[in-house]
Amino acid sequence: MTAIKVENLSKTFKVKVKDKGLKGSIKSIFKPKYKEIKAVKDISFEVEKGEIIAFIGPNGAGKSTTIKMLTGILFADEGNVEVLGISPNKERKKLAYEIGTVFGQKEQLWMHLTPYDNFKFFGAIYDIPNSVAEKRIENLKMLFELEEFMDTPVRNLSLGQRIRCEIVASLIHEPKVLFLDEPTIGLDPVVKENIRALIKRMNKELKTTIFLTSHDVGDIEKLCKRVIIINHGRIVLDDSMEHLKYNYLNKKIIEVKMKEKVNLEDEPGITILKDKGYNLKIEVDTKDKNVADVIKLLDPDKIIDINISNIPLENIISDIYKNEEK
């Protein structure tokens, strides 16, 4: 069963261009100039029911625009969108009953109310009888571990607790598809991890289809079986997580500062990116080599400083581009 179907979707924004200074301001009132920005260019994909799909890309890549078109906030210029067989443009309200949305950067909750009161309010918005709402709140409270702060006004909660409440609020009506726009933005690593685990559990227990946008590689690594990478409004990759992991995410970057010069050469699984004698930058392919083995090769006693990191998303994307060109 298909949950989301997108065909040849495009969206262009007009942005007002203003010359500097007072003269420019006056000019723009009478004769506004516009610049066209193609936010989304001819994208197509499908999402199956029950899937968790990650829609990732750097800031400004077109993620939010796409999610807005899927939820009915924006109309597409060209192309066709269907969510659960419903067109978001034509039947926004009907669709609204079937989907849930969480925008990481925008609050939907009433800040001065407790989570409990907020959930009741969302129950009313989705026409859920009080007794049913109570029962669902009880279940979601367990699932998302909200017991401690059910009666604390939302404004007094930490960001991570707030996001959990935002997610629960959007689940009161048991949506079939949940849209999460940057749910982990601004959270510290531990909380991020916790939110990811909860999202995964929710998908398993409630069978909710999850469409998640992020610019954090970690989000997809932990959560998804399938990834769509978007950049400059185009889909650059639509692939299984396994495949992506095999090709890109199994690489780590090690930066070390040594007491003495070391002689390390390229070998299967190890690529020297930079060698300045005492300072080394190494790419490790964990398929062929363990990070621990590489450190042993370097002689741990002589390491002054070490930093191990994932390959940034930007590099993965440019890598994908390079491979395409080949």
Partner: peptide, 12 residues
């Protein structure tokens, strides 16, 4: 401020 979006996605 784009705060309308939150209301647009609600079925009311």
């Amino acid at each position: 401020k784009g705060k309308l979006d939150a209301f647009i996605v609600q079925p009311k």
